[in-house]
Structures are given as C-alpha cells and as structure tokens.
Design a protein around this nucleic acid. Structure first.
Length: 445
RNA sequence: UCCUGAGUAGCUCAACGGCAGAGCAUCCGGCUGUUAACCGGAGGGUUGUAGGUUCGAAUCCUACCUCAGGAGCCA
C-alpha cells in the first residue's frame, strides 16, 4: 500500500511506493515518456510516466494533463540527480494516476509576464514558484516575530481595528460609517499598547493597519501588517538593544528554515548571515552631516539635489537609502527633530527640538523597517503637546489618564511586516510580500 | 497630487504613414531523459476609448481611461 506523502519530505521515501496529490506545474512531453512536474503545496516533484509501464487509459491521462490540472499520482520514489523540483534530486516513477480535473487554459505560464497581468491574476499567481517561496518565508517571519516576543516575556494584547479617532494623523485614515458616527480603521495600536503595559508590563499587538495615503511607491500598501511591542520602564537604549537582538533572531530563523526558498529567490545569503548584533547607532545630526558630505562629493546635479538636506527636514527615501548604504547591517538613526515626529515622543533633556526617537533602516535600500521612541510620560508635557498640535483633547482623555495613574517611562516601536519580508527576500517591490496587496489602484482580487 | 513612460492575439513583444506579424499558450501529428524540451501543422485581432488630420492611421494630433517607474507622505 502506497504511503501518502508531502513532496517536501520526498527524500525520506527513497525506494518506497508513495502517493502525492496536487497540481501539474509543467510538463515535458517526449511521446512515450511524460515528465510531469507536480506541486502539492509542500514542494515540487518530477513524476515520470512511461507508456510501457502504465495501463493505456492511465498513460492517456498523463498525456492529456494541462497546466494546473489536479490529480493523485502513485509511484516509486527513486533518487536521480537529473530530477528537477523542490527539494529535487528524487522523482516518482508513476504506477498509477487518477485524474481529478483537466484544468482549462491556464493564463500564467512559466515565463515573463507584466505586473498588471500578474496582479489581476494574483489568485492564480500565488501558485507560482517565486510567490510560493516568498509567502512561505513571510509565514516564518511572522511566526518568528511572534515566537521571539512570546519567549521573552512579552504578552500579545490585541488592539482594535475600528477606532473612534486618530492614532496619529487624521488626514491619512480610512473613514467608515459606524451606525451614524464616524469611525476610522486603525493605523496603529500603539496608544492602546500604552494602556496595556500598565497591566502587563511588556506587550505587543499584531494585525493589519490602514493608511489612506495616496502613496504610489515600491514600499507602500494601503493595508499592511505591523507588529508593535511596547515596554514599561524601557528607555531608548533598552529599545535598541532589544530591536537588534529581535531582528537578528528573525533573520537567522529564516536562514535556518528557508535555504531552498532563498535559493529560488536568488537571494544573496551572505548579506543575511551578516545580520547579527550589534547594529550601528547614529544620531539624526550625524546622519545629516554624512548626507551633506556625500552630496558635496557628488558631481551629478540631479543626484546632488536628491540628497540635499537641511537640518530639521525629514528624510526622504533617497536619504534613507544613502544612509543605509553606508552600513552593511541595519542602522539605527536616533534623535530626530521633534517637528517631523509624532506628538507623543519624549523630548531630549536640554534639547527639546529633538526627541528620543529611533528608526531602523534596513540595508540594500529597503528603508525604514521599524520606527519607535520613548513616549512622553509627564502628564503636563503631554497635554501641552496635544494642545500645540491642535488635536481635540476629548479624544485623548483616556490617553492622558494613563499619565495620571502611575505613569512610568516607557518605549515601543512598530515593525512593518511587508518591508521586512521584502528586505529578507531581496524583492524589488512590496506588492509580492503580501498575499493580496491593497494599493492605490488595486483592490482586486 | 506632480513628473516620466507604456497600452497591438490568452501572455510577452515586433511592425512607427501603405496587406496585422513572431514566440509562448491552446488544438492536431512526431519523438524513452526532458529541465521555460525540441520538430512539423492549425485556429486565434473592434491595435485602451472617443474625436481629429490624411487618398490612406496600430503609426501623426487632442482629450480621456488604465498601468508602470520615480517624487511627496509613511511602516
């Protein structure tokens, strides 16, 4: 009796009779010899049908299979260096084949396609090898991000997605009708995290967040996933030490589990092996100096203009990329001007024009993957900041309460899942890092 | 929102003022070791939409639509 196996485990069944269930990924028709490349979700295996070794009705099925036809195949596993597939090196000599469905003409071929076409067919594109590899790595990144926190004393506390008012900036929120009232899709769980630390100490939330920014770049989505740790009694240095441990652990977990997928993606593994603590720390002041120096050395006027920066301005993506390229690991940039950061960030003592904030910039031009800070814990200062930026204090009454009943210094950050996946996988565009991307011009499928 | 570029067969592209083409996919035929196999044959078109210039427009002009790349904004 054949054993039902996962193709991913095929190497354990050399010489045995097995059954695999899946879809035809590609086929090479050599007449009396059919090479069927079969996917089952765990891997891809070559299954070989010889006319002489099969009943004629079964061989006819093997000949008739179109791309993505579904089937159940039984045969003997044998090692063969020529056998393609993932993991590869083993193939199934077919003794029996049962057809489930001959697929209709399948639109996606194993060749180059345009972006629009692939995104229109995303529900089918997820079956393709590269997408399979990326989404498997994404799943591991998410579980590694969560497991590390769970193992280090952080507690998952879910925060709401339907919220009554702005998290940070009202202009970038998706507004919905909530029984006649205005509600917004959450763009951060941080403020709720700040409430939760007073009950649980170290917490995190993980979920989708929504930004109604009309951003049209390779690193923006309207709906993206973010994990946000928040810790009582953490200062900025504690935060950076935690982040570098955290990020490094996640990268190393992907390296352990996904050599094969990284190979499919042709990722330069050495760049990932290098991701270990500590990461460099530079201040915003130093970053601006480095950018000014870099711009001074450049002749191309266009590039020079791109890198122009005056103290007090926020970094655009050319700036972030240029700074990140100066390091071969992620780099922390600290103490940004308060004016370009959120109202709740703690000012630096004696220098209130900058705040105790830290962004982590990924190498190879992948930009900001985390953003965090120490939060203001003094009730009067927080009230003053709320008044200064002109947001309505009623909406933040509960947030101010947190500073009234046992306030403590605390810090936290948010990590964007998709940017992290893009960086670790080495992808040029964030749209492939999430199963169904929601972008400025994309809500289907 | 701004700048730049592109829309031709199911897909990827060619034809750039004078007959609408190729490769892949599909269908038919051949092949016992293929790696996006190969060889032979067949079917497949409102050239993004609307208007204009011209004897004649896929090609030139105008507007609109869609998409891509970049900027801004951000994770």
């Amino acid at each position: 009796m054949a054993t039902l196996i996962n193709i991913g485990d095929i190497a354990q069944y050399d010489g045995q009779e097995v059954t695999v269930r899946g879809w035809l990924y590609n086929r090479t028709d050599k007449g009396r010899l059919q090479f069927l490349l079969v996917r089952d979700g765990t891997g891809v295996a070559q299954c070989v049908a010889f006319k002489k070794e099969l009943p004629s009705d079964m061989f006819e099925i093997a000949q008739a299979l179109t791309q993505e036809s579904s089937m159940i195949v039984t045969g003997t596993v044998r090692a063969d260096e020529r056998a393609p597939g993932y993991p590869g090196g083993f193939e199934v000599g077919i003794t029996s084949i049962e057809l489930i469905q001959i697929a209709g003409e399948y639109p996606i071929q194993p060749k180059e396609h345009g972006v629009e076409f692939l995104m229109d067919n995303r529900h089918l594109w997820v079956r393709s090898l590269r997408q399979w590899a990326i989404l498997r790595i994404r799943a591991t990144i998410i579980s590694a991000l969560r497991n590390w926190l769970d193992d280090h004393g952080y507690m998952l506390v879910d925060t709401p997605i339907l919220t009554p008012a702005a998290g940070e900036n009202t202009t970038t929120l998706f507004e919905i009708d909530y029984y006649g009232e205005s509600a917004f899709l959450a763009q951060t769980g941080q403020l709720y995290n700040e409430a939760n630390i007073a009950s649980f100490g170290k917490v995190y939330c993980f979920g989708p967040t929504f930004r109604a920014e009309k951003s049209k770049t390779r690193r923006h989505l309207m709906e993206f996933w973010m994990i946000e740790p928040e810790m009582a009694f953490f200062d900025l240095e504690d935060l950076m030490v935690m982040e570098e441990q955290y990020i490094s652990a996640v990268v190393q977990t992907v390296l352990e589990k996904h050599r094969m997928e990284l190979e499919i993606l042709e990722r330069d593994i050495s760049k990932l092996e290098n991701i270990t603590p500590p990461f460099a720390r530079i201040s915003y002041d130093e970053a601006v100096e480095r950018l000014e120096k870099l711009a001074a050395e450049i002749d191309d006027p266009e590039r020079k203009a791109e890198l122009a920066i005056t103290w007090g301005g926020d970094f655009g993506s050319p700036h972030e990329t240029a700074i990140a390229e100066m390091f071969d690991k992620p780099v922390f940039v600290t103490n940004y001007p308060s004016a370009v950061k959120a109202f709740y960030m703690q000012p630096v003592e004696g220098r209130p024009e900058v705040c105790r904030s830290v962004d982590l910039l990924a190498p190879e031009g992948y930009g900001e993957i985390t953003g965090g800070s120490e939060r203001i814990y003094d009730p009067d200062l927080l009230k003053q900041r709320i008044d200064e930026i002109g947001i309505s204090p009623e909406n933040y009454a509960w947030y101010l309460d947190l500073r009234r009943y046992g306030t403590v210094p605390h810090s936290g950050f948010g990590l964007g899942i998709e940017r992290t996946v893009a960086w670790i996988c080495g992808l040029p565009h964030i749209r492939e890092t999430i199963p169904y991307a929601r972008m400025l011009n994309r809500l289907y499928p």
